Computed example of a mutant assay.
Amino acid sequence: MEIQHFIKGIVFSLTAFIGLCGNTLILMSLSSIAYQEKKIMPAEIILVNLAVSHLVLLITLGLPHSLYEFGVKYFKTDLDCKFDAYFLRVSRIMSIGLTCLLSCFQCVTLISSHPTWGLLKAWLQKNIISILLGICMLSMVSSISSALYPVINTNLTDQRPAFNLGYFYVVYPNRFVYQLIGFIMFSRDLVFMTLMALASMYILLVLHRHSKQMKGMRSTDQTNTAERQAAKMVVTFVVLYVLFFGIDTSLWFYQTSISNEGPPAINDIRHFLTFCFPSAFPMILITFNQKVRCKLTCFALKHSDI
Rank of each mutant, 00 (worst) to 15 (best):
H271P: 00
Q255P: 00
H210R: 15
F87K: 02
I184G: 03
Y68R: 07
G62Q: 04
K121W: 04
S103L: 01
L198E: 09
F275N: 02
F275W: 05
Y74H: 11
S145W: 15
V48G: 00
I46H: 01
F105W: 07
G9N: 04
V191L: 14
T256F: 15
A122R: 14
I203Q: 07
M217S: 12
F87S: 04
C276G: 06
S66R: 04
F83Q: 06
L101A: 04
L190A: 15
K39E: 10
I286H: 06
S66I: 01
S13R: 05
L198F: 12
G134K: 03
I96K: 00
N289R: 06
K232V: 01
K126M: 09
S187Y: 13
T77C: 07
P161I: 03
L138R: 00
C136G: 04
A230G: 07
L98F: 09
S13E: 03
L50M: 13
G166N: 03
R209G: 10
K232P: 00
T194G: 14
C136M: 12
F245A: 08
G19D: 02
C100M: 15
I93Y: 10
S130I: 06
V191F: 14
M140V: 09
K212I: 11
R293H: 10
F12I: 04
A226W: 04
D158V: 09
T60D: 03
S257C: 10
L180C: 08
Q255E: 14
I45V: 14
G9F: 02
T223N: 13
N267F: 08
C294K: 15
A34P: 01
S66D: 06
D268L: 08
Y167R: 03
Y172P: 00
K212A: 12
S130H: 11
I128S: 04
W252K: 06
L251W: 03
T194A: 13
P64C: 07
L98I: 03
L285H: 11
I26R: 06
D84C: 15
V108T: 05
V48T: 15
T225S: 13
Q159W: 08
P42A: 05
I144D: 03
Q290L: 10
L156S: 12
C81W: 02
L88E: 10
T297H: 12
F12M: 12
D305N: 08
T154R: 02
V242A: 06
I152E: 11
P278D: 03
I286E: 02
P115F: 09
T157A: 13
K291I: 00
